[in-house]
Simulated scan of single mutants.
Amino acid sequence: MHLTQRQRTIDVAAVGQLLLHLPALFASVVIVAALSHVLLPVWWPGVLLWLGSGAMAFHRPTERAVARHLLHLRHPTAPERARVKRVWREVTARAGIEGRAYELWIEDSDHLNAVAAAGHIVGVTRFSLESLSNGQLAAILAHELGHHIRGHAWSSLLGQWYALPGRLAWATVRRLLRFLAVSVTGRGRMRCWTVVLFLVVCSAVVVAALSYWYVVLALALAPYLLAAVARRAELRADHHAVTTGFGAPLAEVLDIMQAAERESGHVTASALSGCGETAVVETGTPARGRSQGILGKLLSSHPDYHTRLHHIAPYLDER
C-alpha cells in the first residue's frame, strides 16, 4: 500500500464553508465577550478559551461522545466489523490513506445512509451493510472519505460550533418577543410593564440591526450560500469516489435511489447527500425537491440524482 504524502487537504468548498460562517462568528464573539465581561474580571480570556475550544473537533473522546450521543451511532458487532473493515481497507488503500486513523461506527437505521463527522468519524447504517454489495458499500465509504480528506467534515463542524452562541442568542430573543407579544394581548396588572418591555426589546433589536446591517444581511444570505457550497462539496466527494475507482458502483447506488424516488412519487432520502444541521457531512438526509419550490431548491444541501449522475458520467466514460 502506498500512502500519499498529504493525508488531508482543504479544498474550495471547505474554505467557502469557513468564510461563510465568519458573520456568525463575529456575532458569537461579541456575545461571548459580553458574557465574559459580566462573569469575569477580564473579558478576553473567556473569548480565547472559547475560540480554542474548536480544537475539540479533533479530540478523540469528544468525537466519540458526538458519535454516540448526537449522531446515535454504536460500535459495530464482530460480523459487522469484519465486513466494514475489509471494505474500508480497500477504500483507503486505493486512496493512499491510513485507514486506521478513522473510527468506523454503525447506525441502527433502515435507510441507506453514511456519515462523516468531526475529524475521524465514519458511520454507516445497518441497512446499508445488509442490502449493498461490497462494491456499492465501498462507493459510499469512499464518498465519506472524500469529505474527510478534503476538509468538509471538520470545517462544517467548526463553522456550526462557532456560530452556536449567536444562534442561541437569536433563539432566546425570538422566544422572548413571542412571550411578550402573547402577554401584551392578555389582561392583567402587568400588562403596562409588559408593553414597555416589549417595546424596549423591539427597539434594541431594530437599533442593533440598523447599526450592524452588513452583519444582518450576511446572516440572512448565509443559509443560501452555505447550501450552495454544501452541494458543491457533495459533487467533490463524488469525484473522489470516482477517481479512486468506485464510480460504477456509485452510479449504481444513485440509480437505485433515483428509481426509488420515482416509484414513490416524491422526494426521498438521498443516497449520498450533504451537510446537515448536526455538524456532519452525511448520506441520507432528506433532499428538498420540486414540491418545496424555488426556496426549497436554494436551501437544499443535496444535489438531485440527475445532477450527480451527470457530473460523474464523463469520468465513467473515460474509464
Rank of each mutant, 00 (worst) to 15 (best):
E144S: 10
F198Y: 11
I121L: 10
M190W: 13
G146H: 15
W213D: 07
L164C: 02
R150K: 15
V207Y: 11
A138H: 04
V182F: 13
R167M: 08
V122P: 03
I256S: 10
G245D: 09
V229A: 02
L197P: 05
A230M: 00
A233N: 10
L157T: 13
I256T: 14
L141T: 02
H240L: 06
L219R: 13
S131P: 01
A233W: 06
F127N: 10
T244N: 12
I140L: 14
T243P: 01
L164V: 09
A220M: 14
H152T: 07
E252F: 09
Y214E: 12
A222H: 09
V195C: 03
V124P: 05
D255M: 14
V216Q: 07
A163V: 02
V215Q: 12
L221K: 00
A169S: 08
A228H: 10
C192S: 11
V195Y: 03
V184G: 00
G186T: 10
V195D: 00
A181Q: 12
S156F: 02
W193H: 10
L226K: 12
L250K: 06
V195P: 00
A248C: 06
F127H: 15
Y212K: 13
L254D: 03
A142F: 08
S156A: 15
D238I: 11
G166Y: 00
S133I: 14
F246W: 01
Y224W: 14
T125G: 11
Y162V: 05
G146N: 15
F127G: 01
L217D: 12
A138N: 01
L158I: 12
G151W: 11
R187D: 09
V122C: 04
S203N: 03
I121V: 15
P249F: 04
F127S: 09
A230C: 00
F198N: 10
Y214G: 13
T244R: 03
L141K: 12
T185D: 09
S183M: 07
A153I: 03
Q160T: 06
R174D: 00
V122R: 02
R175A: 09
Y212S: 14
R150V: 09
H152E: 13
A209H: 02
C192T: 12
V124S: 01
L225A: 14
S156C: 11
Y214Q: 15
G186V: 03
A139C: 07
F127I: 00
H152V: 07
P223Y: 04
V216R: 04
S128E: 08
V173I: 13
F127V: 01
A142Q: 07
S211K: 11
L217V: 15
L157C: 04
H148I: 04
L141M: 12
L250Q: 14
R178V: 11
L168K: 00
L235E: 08
T243F: 05
V201R: 04
S155F: 05
R236F: 06
A248Q: 14
G247W: 01
G135N: 10
F179Q: 13
L250P: 09
L254G: 09
A169N: 01
W193E: 10
T244W: 01
R231F: 10
G247M: 08
L145F: 07
H240M: 11
V196M: 11
T244L: 02
A241P: 13
L176W: 09
Y214M: 15
V184H: 02
W161G: 09
I140Q: 08
V242H: 06
W161K: 02
L158V: 12
G247K: 08
G135V: 05
I256C: 03
H148C: 09
S203W: 09
T172E: 06
V124H: 04
S211Y: 06
A142N: 08
V215R: 10
